[in-house]
């Protein structure tokens, strides 16, 4: 386990003075991804249009201490792939001595939706890069519109909960699985750091692996958005914890095609533990909507069971049962 005192001595690569909302999870994620960079290594960071982008480099103030580029919404992966290609060419010509690492950040809008083609292309081409999706489950930058990452039932400005339609009517796209299907060296699903849990360093560890495993790698990070989730900022990490403990957002990694669960809750909490903390799901918990909660629970269970199979946890469980029967 990494040592916090030692980590704190590494200079931060993102400064204060950015214009993200108070309590935003995105800079937390950026801090912990970039903390995984070795001190001597330089980085080029690309950012898809979104909250993080507009708030971290609002001319003339940049919060980035590494080289950083934003060009558009849907193309952070393509943009960083070009920078990586140029680096390879310049390195081949002997024009560059230093080591550079290439990281792209995008929200779920820029990654799951409008940027999916560019992401898929860059990943398939195998550039030496990491794409980090800070997934907060809606287009927060434009005012909380639904994305394909938005959870079923969530009340957003384009999937509003009304008298007839109770919020978003589709379950979220499973982007981590889509990226795993690209057969990349390293794909992982993780969360913003939650102190006091076993997965406090999950993001850091997975970032380190992603950055220092050669090839195109992908991280999907559940990131709190107090405004979009309608929660008190101070409680946001409790909400993240609930996402993990209910198995709504399991922590796992896929290394060279091999699935591995990186955290298994001792007791899987009911989905209401995640729903009840957030204003965007408030309507689901009203009397008469029990069937919706059941529907969500069933889908969470189905996806969790499938993941357990992929991670070989089912065989492990069977073996454990068999061993105890002997």
């Amino acid at each position: 386990m990494p040592n916090l005192k030692e980590l704190s001595k590494k200079p931060a690569r993102l400064t204060g003075g950015h214009r993200m909302c108070a309590g935003c999870g995105a800079p937390m994620v950026v801090n912990w991804v970039t903390k995984a960079l070795k001190e001597g290594d330089k980085a080029v960071i690309a950012n898809a249009t979104g909250c993080l982008e507009v708030s971290s480099f609002l001319y003339p103030y940049t919060a980035w201490k590494d080289s950083w580029i934003h060009s558009a919404f849907e193309n952070a992966a393509a943009t960083i792939s070009g920078a990586e290609a140029a680096y390879n060419a310049m390195k081949r010509k002997g024009r560059i001595d230093e080591t550079y690492k290439f990281i792209a950040f995008g929200g779920d809008g820029g990654t799951y939706d409008i940027g999916l083609q560019s992401l898929s292309g860059a990943m398939e081409r195998g550039h030496d890069m990491v794409y980090v999706c800070y997934d907060n489950g809606a287009y927060m930058n434009t005012g909380i519109q639904r994305s394909s990452a938005t959870p079923f039932g969530a009340d957003t400005t384009t999937s509003p909960a009304g008298k007839v339609v109770p919020g978003k009517q589709q379950f979220r796209k499973d982007l981590t699985q889509i990226m795993a299907a690209h057969n990349l060296p390293y794909v992982a699903q993780t969360v913003a750091p939650v102190p006091g849990t076993k997965y406090m360093f999950d993001l850091y560890n997975k970032s380190e692996k992603a950055i220092y495993t050669k090839g195109a790698n992908f991280l999907n990070v559940l990131t709190p958005c107090p405004r979009g989730w309608r929660i008190e900022a101070a409680t946001e990490l409790d909400v993240i914890k609930a996402a993990v403990e209910t198995c709504w957002w399991p922590l796992y990694e896929v290394e060279n095609g091999k699935y591995k669960l990186t955290y298994k809750p001792a007791e899987k909490k009911p989905i209401t533990e995640w729903l009840k903390l957030q204003g965007r799901f408030k309507h689901l918990l009203k009397p008469g909507n029990e069937h919706l909660v059941e529907k969500i629970q069933a889908e969470v269970d189905r996806r969790w069971e499938r993941l357990l199979e992929l991670c070989g946890e089912k065989e492990i469980a069977k073996a454990e049962v068999a061993a105890s029967n002997k």
Partner: peptide, 9 residues
């Protein structure tokens, strides 16, 4: 986009 990234580099 890749041209932009590469030229920016």
């Amino acid at each position: 986009s890749a041209c932009i990234g590469a030229a920016a580099a």
